[in-house]
Design a protein around this nucleic acid. Structure first.
Lengths: 181, 181
DNA sequence: TCGATGAGTTTGGCTACCCAAACAGGTTGA
DNA sequence: TCAACCTGTTTGGGTAGCCAAACTCATCGA
């Protein structure tokens, strides 16, 4: 079994993840983010935020200007964007692929967004992109073509059971189609 | 946004989840589980396990016989089995549907197994069951039939983008098939 | 029988979070 | 001008985990 304690040696904790994304969100939405704003947004006290941000400033993820306005460093932005992206992808994966209600999908995504590996998040993105593409007829056609040639490396799907599913469905559909008629 | 602090008010923590599943595993594999065995298995000290298990005994999830042998209560077994099931389903979801390498899928599953909602885990199970079914030609045929009628409530897939994908692929494949010939 | 070994517990220390409360500094309105 | 208010920080307290180290007990072998 892989080391179960990798859990808490993540680059950013659940708490830190939400502090960072909140600062980013506030900055984008209202133009600034102060300790009190972050605290209100997260539902915790100013004191807690003050202490946590001291650590994040020290780690170079958050910077503070002369007006006590907080913003993310380049590295902080990179991390926050990564977490936001993972949250969205996981939520969409659970909602659109698994069929879980949006609210449940959001709760689950919120809990695991900072724990998911880049590779898994990217794979979810590829799958969802594939699903998205399918809503446009022209792309469906190219998908079908690539599924037919069965060795097209530019397939929007990773080489997974899902692609195999698509391939099998295509071939079997044609077979059954002719058989039935 | 749903309350981000639901994170740490889960029924069982990451640590507790692994203590419980370890006791269950050891009990099944070697017939007994002692504090030292659990500690060795988890890679932490006996002292840490001793303290943690005091809490789990107090919560009625772990019981200890006169020989200091640990086992899970009925409730403990229920929780451990739930976590094990979620770990397997999530790992399979990431590996077989997203195409992530097994090792990465396992690491990710280990981190989030105790955080995923029952509904999401069940939905993953349904999807995987559907993929499993597809490997048998007879079931593929019935899937295709149900996709054609497009209102079959007994479909092995939940009504999601994945089913819609299957439906679209089937319809479009037939259309393009005739168009090309 | 007695020392070594192993098992389980307890204790003090550490990190990471949270809170409440006290404190300090700036702004604002009467 | 000055009290009321808002902001941010600090401090003491609490929980959850982890470790190292000391301690207790039981067992086992020479």
């Amino acid at each position: 079994m892989s080391d179960w304690r990798e859990f808490d040696q993540n680059p950013v904790s659940h708490s830190a993840a939400h502090h960072l994304t909140t600062i980013g969100d506030l900055h984008d939405e209202v133009g600034y983010a102060r300790v009190s704003d972050v605290a209100r947004h997260l539902g915790i006290t100013r004191g807690s935020v003050s202490v946590t941000l001291k650590g994040l400033r020290h780690r170079g993820l958050v910077v503070e200007d002369e007006h006590k306005h907080l913003s993310l460093s380049v590295e902080g932005q990179r991390i926050a964007q990564g977490i936001r992206t993972k949250r969205i992808l996981i939520q969409a994966l659970f909602r659109d692929v698994l069929g879980v209600p949006d609210e449940i999908a959001e709760q689950d995504a919120c809990k695991i967004e900072h724990l998911i590996s880049d590779m898994t998040a990217e794979a979810a993105g590829s799958l969802l992109e594939g699903l998205e593409d399918l809503s446009e007829d022209q792309r469906i056609r190219s998908l079908v073509e690539s599924a037919r040639s069965s060795s097209d490396s530019s397939s929007p799907f990773p080489d997974t059971a899902t692609q195999q599913l698509a391939n099998r469905l295509l071939k079997k559909a044609a077979a059954i189609e002719s058989e039935d008629s």
